[in-house]
């Protein structure tokens, strides 16, 4: 009975700790995967207004979320994206949709951005705004924070891959190379993409440690964990057998 009471107290303790949990940063790219993107009405530079589902139904979309008054990551992010996607020039299996998440931006701001990037005439790229931005950002798990002192948004450089059915199949955060973008375009075209989270300093017990230089796996500490329970049971068996030897005689 006493044990049960202690256990119940423990449970209450744990329940109070419950909100200590936050989603690990390493999992940020995994949020909202296989969820549907919000079907926002879009105004696209040089095109007629359309809803998001009309656009992704034509071709899968890589969504890049930026704002034109951005003094931080947005410009390098788009320049890098343009550069990394050069190997896909003329490929019509996807469209890059550059969408402003800042309600202050209008179509001419986006037009200017397209011109500055030299992408105004590029069929693969579209620049757009929407009046339903908060629903859309929420649906893709993008959470910009307004910094009133700097009059800037604090935000991730996020690319969201959306397939023809409107499902988010993959997300990439940061300035990414051609290899990653290849996986992204594959995934929005429903090609299976084998990916695995690389170990980082917070991951102490991985089964294998991948060396990006040699491309080889080395056995890691995690493998010991796999063998440990059997070793413990065997030791337990032998220890018990020795301890109770006397009663056997």
């Amino acid at each position: 009975m006493f044990k049960n009471i202690v256990l119940l107290l423990l449970i209450f303790g744990f329940c109070n700790f419950a909100d200590a949990q936050t989603t690990s940063t390493a999992l940020k790219e995994e949020t909202n995967i296989y969820e549907r993107v919000y079907d926002a009405p879009l105004q696209v530079v040089g095109q007629e207004s359309a809803t998001f589902d009309e656009l992704y139904a034509q071709r899968p979309v890589i969504l890049a979320l930026i704002f034109t008054r951005c003094t931080g990551i947005c410009n390098p992010f788009l320049v890098k994206l343009k550069e990394s996607l050069q190997f896909k020039d003329g490929d019509d299996s996807f469209r890059v949709m550059v969408l402003s998440f800042d309600p202050r931006d209008n179509l001419s701001d986006m037009h200017r951005l397209a011109q500055n990037l030299g992408l105004e005439e590029n069929e693969q790229w579209a620049f757009a705004i929407t009046d339903s931005i908060s629903e859309l950002t929420q649906s893709v798990g993008f959470d910009p924070v307004w910094d009133s002192a700097r009059r800037q948004f604090d935000h991730d450089a996020l690319l969201v891959g959306i397939n023809r059915e409107g499902y988010i199949t993959k997300k990439l955060i940061g300035l990414r190379e051609r290899g990653d973008l290849d996986l992204l375009t594959g995934s929005i075209n429903n090609v299976f993409v084998p990916t695995y989270r690389l170990q980082n300093q917070n991951m102490l017990f991985s089964c294998f440690n991948y060396d990006p230089v040699t491309g080889k796996n080395k056995p890691g500490l995690g493998l010991i964990f796999l063998a440990l329970p059997a070793v413990l049971t065997a030791s337990l068996l032998i220890s018990i057998s020795i301890l109770v030897r006397r009663s056997r005689r």
Binding site: Q21, A26, N202, M203, L204, G220
Partner: peptide, 13 residues
Amino acid sequence: YFSKGNFVNDALL
């Protein structure tokens, strides 16, 4: 759960 992201597990393990 309690490490607030300071410790993550290996999915394969």
